[in-house]
């Protein structure tokens, strides 16, 4: 029952987000849209409940995690993303690159945590996640400018690859 309720509420929120501004009911919606949204959400909830709540683990329902996610997205993530773009701009103009694929071990245990970290890595300075070892959760990262000496180590220094992102992934997703 819980997966059905979660999926229905999520679908309803997205439906209402997409139809806001259609009328005066509750300031933003027309009554028809509201009724149709509830009707469609129940259908979506019945069909898709086993996909959204695949792992049967409800830790992401905790609002503290959402708050941490928002803090992460506005603070360190946005800053790192701006820096990433200036970095890419610099390399586009000067052509100074020293690329390679390195291995990092973020020590995360859940699928959601690894997905979160891999997406963050791709959007931030000089790194792009290429592959993940599904048994050990080791990430293979393409790094556009490897510092001298870093390529000799078996596991690259996680602080140099993605800063504090692994800690944030652990805080938000695990």
């Amino acid at each position: 029952m819980l997966p059905f309720i979660i999926t229905t509420i999520d679908a309803l929120i997205i439906y209402l987000l997409l139809t806001a501004g259609s009328g005066d009911f509750l300031y933003f919606w027309s009554p028809e849209e509201f009724v149709m949204g509830i009707f469609l959400s129940i259908i979506v909830g019945a069909l898709a409940r086993n996909y959204l709540c695949h792992s049967k683990n409800y830790r992401m329902l905790n609002p503290v995690r959402w708050l941490k996610f928002v803090v992460y997205a506005i603070g360190p993530f946005l800053f790192a993303m701006a820096k990433a773009n200036l970095d890419v701009a610099y390399r586009v103009i000067t052509g100074k690159i020293r690329p390679g694929i390195v291995k990092i071990d973020p020590k995360l245990n859940t699928d959601f945590g690894v997905t979160f970290l891999a997406n963050s890595i791709t959007l931030t300075p000089g790194t792009l996640s290429v592959d993940v070892d599904e048994d050990t959760n080791v990430l293979y990262v393409h790094w556009i400018n490897i510092p001298e000496g870093e390529e000799k180590k078996e596991y690259a220094d996680i602080k140099k690859v993605c800063g504090s992102f692994a800690d944030w992934a652990r805080r938000v997703a695990e």
Partner: peptide, 13 residues
């Protein structure tokens, strides 16, 4: 790989 760096980061931002 290096092209993907330019194509994803810069265009997302």
């Amino acid at each position: 790989y290096t092209r993907l760096h330019a194509a994803t980061k810069a265009t997302t931002f």
